[in-house]
Design a protein around this nucleic acid. Structure first.
Lengths: 245, 245
DNA sequence: TGACCTATATCTTATATAAGACATTAAATG
DNA sequence: CATTTAATGTCTTATATAAGATATAGGTCA
């Protein structure tokens, strides 16, 4: 047996991880759309020329990454940026007493501008690149303002952004439906700061009130930064919840 | 075929999760100690009367939970509360520029007291139960104070605590080695507050400086609360890092 | 002889494939 | 509309191979 039947090269990763990568590409290039039912494990196995068990292992990883959702007897489908899941995954502010609920939003500004140095660095673009900036106030159930946040988007990746009539509450679903951009993860940096005069006016608190500043960089499925977001939050009746396991 | 050969009762969970639970119990009751090499997958499969693949699936889950560590050819051992892992898992404050490093500690007080109402609630004990309170200051590489924190422990679970000569930097390893208590997870609530006069004195900042307050409840492997910890952190040169995937 | 090296055997986990059992859904049937 | 049946998917078991880690036997050389 002189020939290599198995593709066992040198530093290669296991087959199931290669399969995962190949399947993630289908999500990135949009050939598999959110909500869509993907082929059964047997079909994928036949198509890729591997066993069903290996396909399963790749799907297991993708399920753990919240990219797929399987239900027994029903099939496996591409995860959608669904309200409650997004809420659970990305919105970590919860009222001190009571359940987590859906925040509402009111847009204050929407401007086209040139990226600051920090923004360009965070978005991995050139300094001075065009960006959109959205500033909005968010509230929980009660109408009392909870936070004020600034979202920065690279204009290059969001063409015809100006045509939007309104900016919905759940922008990640908007990114997905309008531009085919799926947010796959994010990195947040939290600091305590003092409310500026402007913050205080919008949030209805005293200037100098301690605020929780959340600086988020959100990434697409290819791990490229897509959105910057700085939120300044009142934490007198709410807190940022992190579970460490 | 009228008899049920398989134990397939009604709302039962999959076999591999039952196996996981049974193995976690060995960690809880101490029959498997941290650092110890556990039986091979084949041995466990024989002992439990199931296949090696199912044992593997249970171990997969436990590895993902940071309870076990496997290395090919070497075996599987119970995870130890090792410095860098604890740091990565539980200590989320990192310098704004630079690598995460090991914080140092200086103990200010160590007192026996009676639990406040909030403490009793958080620790799931009766109000007025005996607790230990440790207050300490932590610094990063530079000697500049980073945070001041208060740790509250239920005296009932930490007998002869008073005999301790010193309190080490890594208390979770202390809990494990001295009382056999393994911290398996924690829940943190973050708020922005103002530095009190006392905080300011210890941290070397102005009174009223915004601080990041981290209120942590740490749980043992049986999901019972074991430790309360409130940290008040300067975030001028550091931030709390959270990665959402 | 004693120290050291090396090839080999053996144990363990990691990866891959295959097949039967069980669960759920949806279509077909009366 | 209720029941049955078929299709699809997941769960569990079984088996085989690959590769890392370690112990051991045997040989070489100072």
């Amino acid at each position: 047996m002189t020939e290599d039947t198995k593709p066992r090269a040198f530093g290669f990763r296991p087959l199931y991880l290669q399969v995962r990568e190949s399947l993630v590409r289908r999500l990135i290039d949009g050939s598999w759309q959110p909500g869509q039912l993907i082929p059964s494990e047997m079909e994928l196995a036949r198509e890729l020329g591997i066993s069903q068990g290996t396909v399963r292992k790749a799907l297991d990883v993708m399920r753990a990454e919240n990219l797929l959702i399987s239900r027994q007897g029903r099939g496996t489908r591409v995860a959608e940026p669904e309200e409650s899941r997004i809420l659970f995954q990305f919105f970590h502010l919860v009222p001190d007493n009571g359940e987590r609920s859906f925040p509402n939003s009111r847009v204050l500004h929407r401007d086209r501008a040139r990226a600051s140095k920090a923004e360009a660095e965070g978005l991995n673009t050139e300094a001075g690149a065009e960006v959109w900036r959205i500033e909005r106030v968010r509230t929980l159930e009660d109408a009392k303002p909870l936070l004020i946040e600034t979202i920065t988007l690279p204009a290059a990746r969001f063409p015809e952004f100006e045509a939007l009539a309104a900016i919905p509450n759940n922008v990640y679903r908007l990114y997905s439906q309008t531009w085919g951009i799926t947010i796959g993860g994010a990195s947040e940096a939290l600091k305590a700061i003092s409310a500026s005069a402007e913050d205080a006016r919008v949030l209805g608190c005293a200037p100098g009130t301690p605020l929780l500043e959340i600086s988020r960089t959100a990434f697409d499925l290819a791990q490229a930064p897509v959105e910057l977001r700085v939120s300044r939050c009142l934490t007198e009746q709410a807190h940022y919840r992190a579970d460490l396991r």
